[in-house]
C-alpha cells in the first residue's frame, strides 16, 4: 500500500477510536487492531489515490471498497468475515485521501503463517477447511460473486469450533452481470500462484465463474495439508509459476498425505483441474460427501 498514514495523524483524525496496534498491510489497505464503539474490531484504512482534477471518473479503489462492503453486507455465511460497526467514512489524513471502515477482529493465525511455521494439520482440520470454503463459495455464488483471491493469507484459523476457519478480503471480488471495476479490460487481478488457468485466457471475464474459487480453495487446502505449493516449488519467478499453472498436473495430494482418505485427496485433485468443466461443481453434493467422511 502506498502512503500508509502516519499513526499520530491517524489517531488525530479518528479521535473516537482507540488504535491498539498495526496488524498488516495489503495492496491498498492497512489494518489495525482498534477499539471502536467499546468493542475490539479490525480497522481498515484504504488509501484512495488522487485522480486528475479534470477527471470525472471515480477511483477504482473507491469502487472496490464499495463492492466489498456491499458484498459483505449481502453474505451471511459464518465462515466469511463480518463487517464491524464503523461504516465507511472519508478522511483526509496528511495530504492524502482515505476511506476508513471496520470489520470484526478475529483472533487467529492465517493459514500462510501456519504453513510457514511447518504446521501439519490433521485430516479433520483439512476437511473442515474445505467445508468452510464450500459454504463461503456457495454463499458468494448465490450473490453472483467470485472472491478471486482465496489463498492462505486470506484465511484465518480460529480457536472456535463454530467458526474454525474464516475467509477474509473481498477486495477484488468480481460481480457477475455487473460492470467491471478495473478499467483495463486486460488487467488480471489476483495472487498469481492461486489464480486458476482460465483467468489467463482471452476474454477471461467470460470464462470465470464460481469454479475459479473452487480451484483456489482446493489449492489452498492442498498447500495447507501438504505444506507445499505445487506450482511454486522453491521458484518465485512469475513466468515459472505461470508456466506451471498452465501446464503441470500437480502430484496427487495422497502422495503427500497417505494418512488422508483417498476420496478426500481425489476430491482436491479433481477441484484443481485446469479445465473448469472437469471440476465437480455441485457444491451441495461436495458438502454432503465431505460431511460423510
Amino acid at each position: 500500500m502506498e502512503f500508509k498514514p502516519d499513526s499520530e495523524l491517524l489517531k488525530k483524525a479518528l479521535p473516537d477510536i482507540e488504535i491498539i496496534r498495526f496488524v498488516a498491510m495489503g495492496g491498498y489497505k492497512a489494518v489495525y487492531e482498534a477499539i471502536i464503539n467499546g468493542k475490539k474490531e479490525a480497522l481498515k484504512v484504504a488509501y484512495i489515490p488522487r485522480e486528475d482534477d479534470r477527471s470525472e471518473e471515480v477511483p477504482d479503489t473507491l469502487l472496490r471498497i464499495k463492492r466489498e462492503v456491499e458484498s459483505l453486507n449481502q453474505c451471511k455465511c459464518p465462515y466469511l468475515v463480518r463487517l464491524g460497526s464503523l461504516k465507511p467514512q472519508w478522511h483526509i489524513i496528511g495530504f492524502h485521501n482515505y476511506i476508513v471502515y471496520s470489520e470484526e477482529f478475529l483472533e487467529g493465525k492465517s493459514l500462510a503463517e501456519l504453513i510457514k511455521s511447518g504446521f501439519k494439520p490433521t485430516f479433520d482440520q483439512c476437511r473442515k477447511l474445505l467445508l468452510c470454503f464450500l459454504y463461503v463459495i456457495k454463499e458468494l455464488k448465490m450473490n453472483k460473486l467470485i472472491h478471486r483471491d482465496i489463498k492462505p493469507a486470506n484465511v484465518l484459523a480460529l480457536d472456535d469450533p463454530d467458526r474454525p476457519y474464516v475467509v477474509l478480503d473481498l477486495g477484488i471480488a468480481f460481480k457477475l452481470d455487473s460492470t467491471a471495476i478495473t478499467r483495463d479490460p486486460n488487467a488480471v487481478l489476483g495472487t498469481l500462484p492461486y489464480m486458476p488457468p482460465e483467468t489467463f485466457t482471452e476474454n477471461f471475464h467470460q470464462q470465470i465463474d464460481f469454479r475459479s474459487d473452487l480451484y483456489s480453495a482446493a489449492l489452498t487446502t492442498y498447500e495447507y495439508a501438504s505444506g507445499t505449493h505445487p506450482f511454486i516449488q522453491g521458484q518465485r519467478s512469475d513466468p515459472f509459476i505461470l508456466q506451471r499453472i498452465l501446464k503441470i498436473t500437480p502430484s496427487s495430494l495422497y502422495s503427500h498425505r497417505p494418512d488422508f482418505p483417498g476420496s478426500f485427496c481425489q476430491m482436491i485433485d479433481q477441484l484443481i483441474k485446469k479445465i473448469p468443466a472437469l471440476r465437480p461443481s455441485n457444491i451441495d453434493d461436495l458438502i454432503k460427501k465431505l460431511e460423510a467422511l
Binding site: 470464462q207 465463474d209 464460481f210 469454479r211 479445465i275 473448469p276 468443466a277 461443481s281
Partner: peptide
C-alpha cells in the same frame, strides 16, 4: 468444445 462443456456443466 471445452468452452461449451464449461457452459454445460455450470
Amino acid at each position: 468444445f471445452i468452452s461449451f462443456l464449461s457452459t454445460l456443466t455450470a
